[in-house]
Amino acid sequence: HTCEKCSTSIANQAVRIQEGRYRHPGCYTCADCGLNLKMRGHFWVGDELYCEKHAR
């Protein structure tokens, strides 16, 4: 898989955010504040991922 955020190959663990879309665990972050979304879930606003606070 290729990380959709940093565009590099994912060798080990990948986070599947949608069918066919993956990120490194470290790239699974809010587009606004950079908070890691692991164990928090994500919210779509347009084509970007946000934490609950910044999705509003």
Rank of each mutant, 00 (worst) to 15 (best):
H42V: 10
G34A: 10
Q13T: 09
H24R: 04
W44H: 14
S9I: 01
N36P: 13
G46E: 12
L35H: 11
G26M: 12
M39E: 15
G20D: 05
G26T: 14
E48F: 10
D47V: 07
K5S: 09
D32A: 04
C3L: 00
E48K: 11
N36W: 04
K53R: 09
S9Q: 10
E48I: 08
E4W: 06
A11Y: 02
G26K: 14
D47E: 09
Q18G: 10
Y50A: 07
R40V: 13
K53W: 14
A14S: 08
T8I: 04
C30Y: 00
A31L: 14
Y22D: 09
A11M: 03
A55V: 08
C51W: 00
V45C: 06
H1N: 15
Y28R: 03
S7C: 12
L49Y: 06
G20P: 02
W44L: 13
N12S: 11
E4A: 06
D32K: 08
R23C: 06
E4R: 02
F43N: 13
Y50D: 10
C30P: 01
C30F: 00
E48D: 10
T29S: 09
P25T: 09
M39T: 14
H42Y: 04
R40Y: 08
V15Y: 03
R56Y: 14
H24I: 00
P25R: 04
C3K: 03
L35A: 13
I17P: 05
S9V: 03
G41N: 08
G34C: 04
A11L: 01
A11I: 00
E4F: 13
Y28I: 03
A55W: 13
L49Q: 08
D47S: 11
G41S: 04
Q13S: 09
R23E: 05
G26S: 13
T29Q: 11
Y50L: 11
E19C: 03
Y50F: 11
G46Q: 07
L49S: 05
C3A: 00
A55G: 10
Y28D: 01
I17V: 09
Q18K: 08
H1L: 14
E19A: 08
C27E: 09
C3F: 03
A55D: 09
M39F: 08
Q13M: 07
G41F: 06
G41E: 07
C3S: 01
I10K: 03
S7Q: 11
N36A: 09
C33L: 02
E52P: 14
L35P: 03
M39Y: 11
G20E: 07
H24M: 03
R16T: 14
G41P: 11
Y50G: 03
Y50R: 11
